[in-house]
């Protein structure tokens, strides 16, 4: 039996309220966050945006909040009457990744330190299904959960100045894909040729939404090159999750 969740409300700026859950990263909290987010979006409030992280929601209004107490009461009513999170409508996105030492500059170093060979690291990384918790850090960057504990590996103390677009990395207990060239401190194990932002996603800005699932599919360097050269016609494979 999951313990009852407690939320608290904090006025973050003149136009926004931050809603906090217990500080922890797990699906019980995440799905409660996501169902609250959905309920707020469906309400009749004048809201510019609602966005979530692992255990918080930020509600930004179109204008200055007049009465913070009545607004918090009204949000809490929405919370108390919201529906349970429905996972069955979610998608599993299949993301092609070329894992090798050419793209994965840090594979050998991780391997030495965590006492697993490169093949085992690759297997452990692509056999898990990850949950998209939220987007942040860079446009199109997906914060994923469910990295195998054996692959936890600390961030670099000296970040790399240029990690190339598509790099798949491990930073502490997190894993993810750099959607654009960027400085960064994660250890790189492979590269995905696809676009995470700016691609053809049926008018959506990102193909994935929080709550979706991600599966990394290992591909060869030739396949990587082929997808990269034909990105315009590449459609990300997905299926509806039946959990």
């Amino acid at each position: 039996m999951n313990k009852k969740l407690v939320v608290n409300y904090f006025q973050f700026s003149s136009k926004s309220i931050l809603i906090n859950w217990d500080n922890s990263i797990n699906n019980h909290i995440l799905f409660d966050v996501l169902s609250f987010m959905q309920a707020i979006k469906l309400s009749d409030k004048s809201i510019l945006e609602v966005r979530n992280t692992y255990c918080s929601l930020l509600v930004t209004y179109t204008s200055t909040i007049d009465n913070i107490y009545s607004e918090i009461n009204s949000l809490n009513l929405i919370y108390l009457h919201k529906k349970k999170y429905n996972i069955s409508e979610k998608k599993i996105w299949k993301i092609p990744v070329c894992y090798n030492e050419y793209f994965g500059k840090d594979l050998v170093n991780i391997s030495k330190n965590i006492k697993l060979n490169v093949e085992e690291i690759i297997k452990l990384h692509n056999e898990n299904t990850y949950t998209v918790c939220f987007l942040g850090f860079l446009p199109g960057f997906l914060y994923l959960s469910n990295l195998n504990k054996k692959l936890y590996f600390p961030r670099k103390s000296d970040p790399d100045l240029n990690i190339i677009k598509g790099s798949v990395g491990i930073g502490g207990s997190q894993t993810g894909v750099y959607p654009s060239n960027s400085p960064g401190g994660w250890n790189i194990i492979g590269n995905s040729p696809i676009d995470f932002i700016g691609g053809d996603f049926n008018d959506k800005i990102s193909f994935a939404t929080p709550g979706d699932l991600i599966k990394f599919i290992p591909i060869s360097q030739d396949d990587h090159k082929h997808i990269l050269n034909n990105l315009g016609s590449y459609k990300i494979d997905s299926e509806v999750f039946n959990g």
Partner: peptide, 10 residues
């Protein structure tokens, strides 16, 4: 770009 921060867009 107001309202697009949920995509990581500043």
């Amino acid at each position: 770009r107001e309202g697009l921060q949920s995509y990581g867009i500043p």
